[in-house]
């Protein structure tokens, strides 16, 4: 079965360019603004959109995304409302792949079966769940694959060749390579080391490999795009959003364009990456 994610990466391969994958937190700073940001992203050059599902205790995230999650929760974001935002986005865009990213507990509490039905109906294509390693595949990964959703796994610098096959076994859509050991938004990724790591993963899988964590500028995005099938940027977009808010953390007239402008600059970087 081909998902929007598979179709998008096949198309990008034909065009010989890397995917620009954006991450924004649903409901940050409120649900309506966040929908407007999502609608602006494809036009700014986003090829795949990751939407964060806010959680009170995001143990793999740095300060920027932690704060984004808290703003979203304060604005009343729930998992059901996040699915509602995806549904409204899908009414205007039926081709851009949407991946939900977050932690397991809200899904577990929502109910795995009900969540998968509702997520698919809303137009979600894939899931990235940070705290579900392959050792816990029976929880959500296998049911998600059966429901026709991609389950995108994180591979990290600590995932050695012995462990990679287990990590890749039930992965679909793409592989998300975490370029550093650390939390989101911290250290910068070294593009030479990333190239080696992507090559290593590609010896084990035919799936596209996207690289994220620590990529903040168009230059860094270009450097990574030369080595990978996709470049993921999250914290930098979230920081741009935060900088546009008023002192009460409410959206301003500049909020949507602040995110879209940075996304456009990063997209240009990603597109330049293969031309060099």
């Amino acid at each position: 079965m081909t998902t929007r994610i598979d179709a998008r990466f096949a198309e990008l391969k034909r065009q010989n360019r890397a995917a620009f994958v954006t991450f924004v937190m649903c409901g940050d700073p409120d649900l309506d603004t966040s929908l407007e940001i999502l609608k602006a992203l494809p036009g700014a050059g986003a090829d795949v959109i990751e939407i964060g599902m806010p959680f009170t205790d995001p143990m793999a995230d740095g300060p920027a995304i932690q704060a984004a999650g808290l703003r979203a929760l304060k604005a009343g974001t729930t998992l059901a409302k996040t699915l509602g935002v995806v549904k409204r986005f899908r009414a205007t865009d039926d081709v851009t792949p949407v991946v939900l990213m977050g932690y397991y507990n809200p899904i577990y509490v929502y109910g795995v079966d009900r969540f998968l039905v509702d997520a698919r109906a809303a137009g979600v294509d894939g899931l990235i769940i940070v705290d579900l390693p392959p050792e816990e595949d029976d929880e959500l990964c296998i049911p998600a694959l059966n429901a026709g959703l991609n389950f995108i796994r994180l591979a990290t610098p600590t995932t050695d060749d012995k462990r990679l096959p287990a990590v890749l076994a039930n992965t679909s859509g793409f592989v998300y390579y975490v370029s550093i050991t650390g939390i989101t938004g911290s250290a910068a990724a070294d593009s030479a080391a990333v190239g080696g790591a992507v090559a290593r993963i590609k010896r084990h899988t035919g799936l596209p490999v996207c690289v994220g964590f620590g990529i903040r500028t168009p230059e860094a995005a270009a450097a990574i795009a030369g080595h990978a099938d996709g470049v993921v940027v999250g914290s930098a977009l979230v920081d741009a959003l935060r900088a546009s808010l008023d002192p009460q953390d409410h959206a301003t007239a500049k909020t949507v364009t602040a995110v879209a402008d940075l996304a456009a600059a990063l997209a240009a970087g990603v597109r330049a990456g293969r031309g060099r």
Partner: peptide, 20 residues
């Protein structure tokens, strides 16, 4: 062997930590 006490316990951690 997987750290379960009935339905409780387990290993719900990020991939970076799993090998550790």
């Amino acid at each position: 062997d997987h750290g379960h006490f009935g339905q409780f316990g387990g290993r719900f951690v990020a991939e970076t930590l799993m090998p550790l």
